[in-house]
Amino acid sequence: MVRTSDITQLSEAALVREIHAKNRQAFTFIYERHFQELAMAAFRYVKDAGIAQELVQEVFIRIWEQPSLLDENGALRAYLYKAVINHAINYLKREKNIARHHSLIAESLTDSYLHNLQEEQELKLRIYQEIEKLPKQCAKVFKMSRFDGLKYREIAEQLQISEKTVENHIINALRILRENLFYRQDNSRDYTTNLRLMQLFALLAGDLLSRL
């Protein structure tokens, strides 16, 4: 397997080979690079951001569990788009004759749904705990932006700092969080759980993810 520092320089074909070899760093790199654009592609069909994100995650989990789905000589990005769109279309077919509220009631009664809900809440709690460990001013700016929904200008005015300083605090917070959540991670977590944690982190990072 290649070194982590070399992953960003690999071609699509080389990345696919690394996934076939179960290289988690390569898989995570692809996940973080394409997650948002694939979620937007799915959203065009299902019209629900949460469901779109779940569909994309399911596609990635299936790829991790069955890397042979990826053709080493194929175009990776094109395959991901095709897989996500097909998954979205199949979802719509399944939901076509089921009233949404009936579906939710049935889903809420399953052990799987309750387990996933509990796990998601535990992962959110883990993220919130890490946010509280950030430097005081950094944590304050981050929460004002991500939880209070304030714009950079509004935060800058309230704290009497520049908008650039606000942006730097948020980028620094995201870097620290990613380091603590993924590179100093609990080895007892399975990879599917890590994927869910990545999804929650990607939602927090938003359009700044590519700059981390």
Rank of each mutant, 00 (worst) to 15 (best):
A173Y: 07
P67A: 08
V2Q: 13
I155F: 01
A99K: 15
A205E: 02
L15Y: 04
G149I: 09
L150R: 05
R184A: 00
V56R: 03
V166N: 02
R184W: 06
K136S: 09
N90I: 08
A75Q: 14
L209H: 05
Y81E: 01
E12Y: 00
E95T: 06
F43T: 05
L174F: 03
T8K: 15
L10H: 00
L134R: 06
F60W: 05
K124D: 07
H115Q: 04
N172A: 13
D111M: 10
F29Y: 14
N90V: 08
A13W: 01
I98A: 10
D71L: 11
S11M: 03
E54Y: 11
E37Q: 12
R94V: 06
Q137M: 13
Q158P: 06
Q9L: 13
A106S: 12
E119W: 08
L203A: 13
L92P: 10
K164H: 12
D148Q: 15
Y183Q: 12
N23C: 07
H87F: 12
L159T: 02
R44L: 13
L104F: 07
D71R: 14
L38N: 06
E95L: 04
E65A: 09
S145Y: 13
N172H: 15
R17F: 04
H87L: 08
K47A: 15
A42P: 01
N86Q: 14
I61Q: 09
A41P: 09
Y91W: 14
Q129E: 08
L159W: 02
Y79L: 00
N180L: 01
I105C: 14
N23Q: 06
L195Q: 01
A83S: 12
I131V: 05
V84P: 04
L92N: 09
H101M: 13
L123P: 02
G206S: 00
F60S: 05
L55V: 01
D48M: 05
E130T: 01
V2F: 14
